[in-house]
Amino acid sequence: MLEAIKGIEDAIRDKSYRDYQRSWVLRSALERGIEIISEASRSLGPKLKARHKNVRWKDIAGIGNILRHEYQRVDDRIIWNAVKNELPPLKQALLALQASLADED
Rank of each mutant, 00 (worst) to 15 (best):
L2K: 12
L90W: 06
D19T: 03
V74R: 06
I12A: 06
W80R: 01
R27P: 01
D103L: 15
E3Q: 13
V25M: 00
G64E: 07
L67N: 00
I63N: 02
G33C: 02
K49W: 05
V83A: 06
Q72E: 12
L95K: 05
L90N: 04
R42P: 03
G45Q: 12
A93N: 03
V83C: 00
D75G: 07
I36D: 10
A82T: 14
N85K: 10
L94S: 03
G33K: 05
K84A: 08
A93T: 01
L26H: 05
D19Y: 03
I5P: 06
L67R: 11
R77F: 10
V25G: 03
A93L: 00
K6F: 13
G64F: 09
S41C: 11
E86S: 14
I5Y: 10
S100Q: 10
V55S: 08
V74Y: 09
K6C: 07
G45S: 13
L87T: 00
Y17R: 03
W80M: 02
Q92M: 12
I36H: 04
L67I: 08
Y20V: 02
G7N: 15
N81S: 11
I79S: 03
R51E: 14
K6M: 13
E39M: 02
N65D: 14
Q92H: 10
D103N: 15
K91Q: 11
A29P: 04
I63V: 12
L67W: 01
I37Y: 02
E31F: 05
A40K: 08
R77Q: 15
L101F: 09
K6T: 14
A93R: 01
I34Q: 00
D75V: 10
V25S: 07
I8M: 05
D75I: 11
L2S: 05
A61W: 11
N85D: 09
I60K: 06
W80N: 04
L94F: 04
N81Y: 01
V55R: 04
A82L: 13
L67A: 07
A29C: 03
P88I: 06
S16N: 12
E39P: 03
D76T: 00
R68S: 13
G33P: 08
L95V: 12
D10Y: 10
S23I: 10
A61F: 11
D59S: 14
S16D: 06
R13A: 01
W57N: 01
E104I: 04
V25C: 00
I5S: 05
R68T: 14
D76N: 03
R42L: 15
L90I: 05
A40G: 09
D59V: 13
E31S: 07
I37R: 02
R68C: 12
I12K: 09
I5M: 05
D10R: 13
S100H: 08
M1I: 08
K15R: 13
G7D: 12
K91D: 03
P46H: 15
D75P: 05
I36V: 13
L48R: 15
H69M: 09
R22G: 07
Q92I: 12
N54Y: 14
I34C: 05
G7Y: 02
A29D: 04
D103Y: 12
G64D: 07
W24A: 08
